[in-house]
Design a protein around this nucleic acid. Structure first.
Lengths: 215, 215
DNA sequence: CCCGCAATAGTGGTTAACCACTATTTGCAG
DNA sequence: CTGCAAATAGTGGTTAACCACTATTGCGGG
């Protein structure tokens, strides 16, 4: 029995490349492809492959969202995330969710094969480039000290509102957006501000804009 | 004689995909590949292909830089830019430099073939997706584009104040900082806002924080 | 000499965000 | 069932930023 793999990436050319590489192997085969997150989910549920190679950024559902959904449904499919994002928080989240591999799209083709082989043997594979990049940039990339823990204390609704604030929407606009009272939005603002230990006028807006990349 | 094409992209898998697609054609062949801008330049100079398909973002030299260099040296190679960037200014610059094709990486494979065929016939090809995207987003995505000219219209004092605003200081703090009245600071705020064609509460603060890197 | 511009300063009004409360409903864990 | 957390909604007040004016000083070019 060949090692059954599903691949998902919203760039058809990239998907093509991956498919050819995998199908060139004697011991593996591509049993499904998808161009967006939702299709990826459906394909994986249908096929229950041994491995899914997912792009991080995809329409409908992100690669990580797909991972989360599948893993929460207790299937044994393993995941390799293929991305161009070097950012620590993506990597951290992927590791937390429990992906088995994480590599950059600008890595060599050989690395993808090595990763697949490593994951097939039940081990985790992380691109050495990522590791070195993170160690070099960790000081820079870690700016909001303890932010991760603070962010974890936010409720789902609060996170949504924080994102909308980062888009520099007013309380009224946010209220219209998610169909609640502007007063409630103000309440959430106050709660978020307290949890993030901010103070002063516009402090939340400043924070949201500045760290909108990692929310 | 086959249509001779050089491809350059820093993602090996993507490059692989493109190469396979082109080599699958009877009337075209890949005569060179590069993983960064400098190699791309050297390869094109060596081969003088009919067409070069370039990624926009590459190490050493961007795809557009390569175009500029080659075109300034009066070679007849045509260029297709393949990118994930929908931003108007990239597109504008590419058109100004004189590329013959511009398409997004998330376009279908067929589109790349259509683009190559169209360019081969001497016509320009622009992805329809780009065009529709630009018409939809043109108003939103405009800011950093003509910003340079706008920034040039600011007086020295206004630039200083803009920087202080970017540091998210209040009018009072700025006033204390440069020893003028907070009213005057408010005046400058208004003038800057007008010159930058901003409007609405906190719009200046948002702008200053977001573009603080280029002030 | 006058004109325009930059910089300075002020007045008065509007508004969005913040601050500090109280209060109700819902859903989940113990 | 009970109690807590989250989400919802409201009231009342403060303040910083914005908006729209007017006004003065000083400086350089026509």
């Amino acid at each position: 029995m060949k090692y059954r793999i599903v691949i998902a990436d919203d760039h058809p050319i990239f998907r093509n490349g991956i498919r050819d590489i995998i199908n060139g192997l004697a011991w593996a085969e591509v049993v499904g492809e998808a161009g967006n997150g939702l299709d990826a989910y459906k394909t994986i549920i249908n096929q229950i492959p041994d491995l899914a190679v997912l792009d991080l950024e995809m329409p409908m559902l992100s690669g990580l969202d797909v991972c989360k959904k599948i893993l929460s449904e207790k299937h044994f499919t393993r995941f390799i995330i293929l991305t161009m994002h070097k950012e620590k928080h993506f990597f951290d989240e992927a590791m937390n969710i429990g992906v088995m591999g994480y590599l950059l799209k600008d890595n060599a083709i050989d690395e993808l094969l090595t990763a697949i082989r490593t994951v097939k043997e039940g081990k985790q594979y992380v691109s050495p480039l990522i590791e070195s990049y993170l160690t070099v940039h960790q000081a820079v990339q870690q700016l909001p000290d303890g932010f991760k823990e603070l962010h974890a204390t936010l409720t789902p609704t609060e996170k949504v509102i924080l994102k909308l604030i980062a888009q520099s929407k007013t309380s009224q606009e946010i209220a219209d957006n998610i169909f609640i009272s502007p007063n409630t939005v103000d309440n959430h603002r106050a709660n978020i501000t307290r949890k993030l230990k901010l103070e002063g006028k516009n402090s939340l807006l400043k924070f949201a804009i500045q760290y909108s990349g990692m929310l």
